[in-house]
Amino acid sequence: MTERFSHLVRGSGPGLLLAHGAGGSVEANFGPILDDLARTHTVVGPDYPGTGATPRSRRPLDLDEMADSLVATAVDAGVDRFTVLGYSLGTAVAVRAATRHPDRVTGLVLTAGFARLSNQMRLAVGVWRELLEAGNPELLAKYMTFVATGRDFLNALSRPEVDAALAGLVVPPGTPDQVDLVAAVDTRADLALVTAPTLVIGTRQDLLAPLDLQRELAAGIPGAEYVEIESGHLMQIEARDDWLAHIRKFLERDPS
């Protein structure tokens, strides 16, 4: 039986389903734009296993099951058709949802995404996973701040602001499982099968999901629109307004 995720529902209007990143949550990854999106759309935001109120999985996460559960959560919430807004790992979940449920997915917006891991990304994700096991939260916070934050934004912070960012790192209990799923992602065969209108938003200063992988993702989806913003992996903090503007422009054509 397809699992349903704990989720939030906000707003009214066409459906918009959120797919967050590994080690994130709906609030952490989409919180800065949730109210804006809910002004024009019915936003459904599920949390993955081990995040928020969704229990941690007792077995390895599977991309097909994640996509099915994401869609089922939206349908159970009364939203039958929707654009999927995916971030990081959520872009792979969104692509798989679009190919497995083309009758429900009317559009895709994919930010800081990837269809596979390059050697560079595999090493970055591997260190992330090892640090989760090492039991050194301070070192984990330093690594994640370095790899996820764009150079311009990070270098503009004061020392106290950097210290506050390090202290503020939250690691949901399901993060190791979600990072393992990142390491297994390969949706290259799915890309040509995507029929929904798609916008891919690249993050130019991204060290975690390098820009070449984001461009490759866009190139693989027929007719995908591609834009870039000046940001690292944390565009919801670094370039919130630019990110939202591109999403809004796409959603104005939302056929849901």
Rank of each mutant, 00 (worst) to 15 (best):
5 F>S: 05
6 S>G: 14
12 S>G: 09
13 G>L: 09
17 L>K: 09
22 A>G: 14
24 G>Y: 00
25 S>I: 00
26 V>K: 05
27 E>R: 13
30 F>V: 10
33 I>D: 12
38 A>K: 13
39 R>Q: 15
39 R>T: 14
41 H>K: 13
41 H>R: 15
46 P>I: 03
48 Y>C: 10
49 P>A: 11
50 G>L: 11
50 G>A: 11
55 P>C: 10
57 S>K: 11
61 L>I: 12
63 L>N: 08
63 L>G: 12
65 E>W: 03
68 D>V: 02
69 S>K: 02
70 L>I: 05
70 L>R: 06
72 A>F: 00
73 T>N: 07
77 A>E: 10
78 G>T: 04
82 F>W: 11
83 T>Y: 03
84 V>P: 05
84 V>F: 03
85 L>M: 06
90 G>T: 06
91 T>K: 09
99 T>Y: 04
107 G>M: 07
108 L>E: 03
110 L>A: 10
111 T>L: 08
112 A>R: 01
113 G>S: 07
118 S>Y: 03
120 Q>C: 02
124 A>Q: 13
131 L>C: 09
132 L>K: 11
139 L>P: 06
140 L>M: 14
145 T>Y: 05
145 T>R: 08
148 A>N: 10
153 F>C: 00
155 N>K: 06
158 S>E: 12
159 R>Q: 14
164 A>H: 08
165 A>H: 04
167 A>K: 14
168 G>E: 04
170 V>I: 08
171 V>G: 10
171 V>P: 11
178 Q>S: 13
179 V>A: 14
180 D>Q: 10
181 L>Y: 05
182 V>W: 01
182 V>L: 08
186 D>E: 09
186 D>I: 06
190 D>W: 03
191 L>R: 14
192 A>M: 02
192 A>Y: 00
193 L>N: 10
198 T>H: 04
198 T>W: 01
199 L>G: 04
200 V>C: 11
202 G>P: 03
202 G>M: 01
202 G>R: 09
205 Q>Y: 00
208 L>E: 01
210 P>T: 01
225 E>N: 07
226 Y>S: 13
227 V>T: 12
228 E>A: 11
228 E>L: 03
229 I>L: 13
231 S>H: 00
234 L>I: 06
235 M>F: 05
236 Q>V: 07
236 Q>A: 14
239 A>Y: 02
244 L>P: 12
248 R>D: 14
248 R>H: 09
250 F>G: 03
250 F>H: 11
254 D>N: 15
